[in-house]
């Protein structure tokens, strides 16, 4: 299922403002890639270009190419809706649909586009997805309760279950643990470790330990100053980034010396 992502010379704009400049990198399938860097450095903007979610903001557009197994996401005639069905996303704050039950939340993506699914298939898929998100045992007795009745960490795992229910090629996670307590964070990190077997995972995080714990490769982004575009400074194996980075700015950032 998982696919390789190649980004070539990508510039991201919000109207006239250039938010991210000249990013090129390759993300291997069945791996976890972490994006780190100070706030406002464009890492969230960049991760959103990988499933075209940045287009939700009026006036946003990109230059360059994002290839998923060789297919350009920004090619002519490519429907962003179909891109997002292949590249799932988990957000900073858990966002299950409050008006739906736990089971309906899991099935939300599957039922899109008027796809029909039999009751037994649906039940199987709910169980499989919730198992996959390590949530099944906690919620199996209350699948008809609203998603908002769960704790924050459970809600986030519900969102992950919802994302994997549609069997995407890639899962993007934009600071998935920043609103969670350490125990819930640990649960999510364990889950990422398991999901890696089947999916290509990209995660944005502000937590250095988290990046070093969960990721295989790490990309460090930063900006030269306010109003300047964010750039990719260094992209390498996580162990290299955290022990022996080749750029001084990276070393300063991961060791906490960054101003």
């Amino acid at each position: 299922m998982s696919k390789r992502i190649e980004v070539r010379d990508l510039n991201v704009y919000y109207g006239k403002f250039k938010a991210v400049e000249d990013v090129s990198l390759t993300i291997e399938p069945r791996s976890v890639t972490a994006f780190i860097g100070p706030s406002g450095c464009g890492k969230s903007t960049f991760i959103r270009t990988l499933n075209r979610m940045h287009e939700v903001i009026p006036g946003a557009y990109v230059e360059g190419e994002v290839l998923v197994d060789g297919d350009n996401l920004y090619g002519a005639g490519i429907d962003p809706v179909l891109v997002r069905r292949q590249v799932g996303m988990v957000f900073q704050r858990p966002n299950p649909f409050p008006t739906m039950s736990i089971a309906d939340n899991v099935l939300a993506g599957v039922k899109l586009n008027n796809r029909r699914i039999s009751k037994s298939d649906a039940d199987d898929l709910v169980e499989k997805s919730l198992q996959g998100a390590n949530l099944w045992n906690e919620v199996k007795d209350r699948l008809d309760r609203p998603g908002s009745s769960l704790s924050g960490g459970q809600q986030q795992r519900l969102c992950i279950a919802r994302a994997i229910a549609v069997e995407p090629e890639v899962i993007l996670m934009d600071e998935p643990c920043s609103a969670l307590d350490p125990i819930s964070t640990l649960a999510i990190e364990d889950l990422i470790e398991e999901l890696k077997r089947d999916y290509t995972i990209v995660i944005v995080t502000h937590n250095m330990q988290q990046a070093s714990r969960v990721s295989d490769k790490t990309a460090f982004f930063t900006i030269a100053g306010t109003g300047m575009p964010g750039t990719l400074i260094e992209y390498d194996d996580t162990s290299v980034i955290f022990s022996n980075p080749s750029v001084k700015a990276t070393e300063d950032y991961v060791s906490g010396k960054f101003g």
């Binding site: 499933n51 979610m53 939700v56 809706v81 179909l82 891109v83 997002r84 069905r85 799932g88 996303m89 957000f91 704050r93 966002n95 299950p96 649909f97 409050p98 939300a108 993506g109 899109l112 586009n113 969102c159 919802r162 994302a163 549609v166």
Partner: peptide, 11 residues
């Protein structure tokens, strides 16, 4: 958040 959740699922 909810609108983005739906869009990110490919709605």
């Amino acid at each position: 958040l909810h609108e983005e959740a739906a869009l990110a699922l490919g709605a």
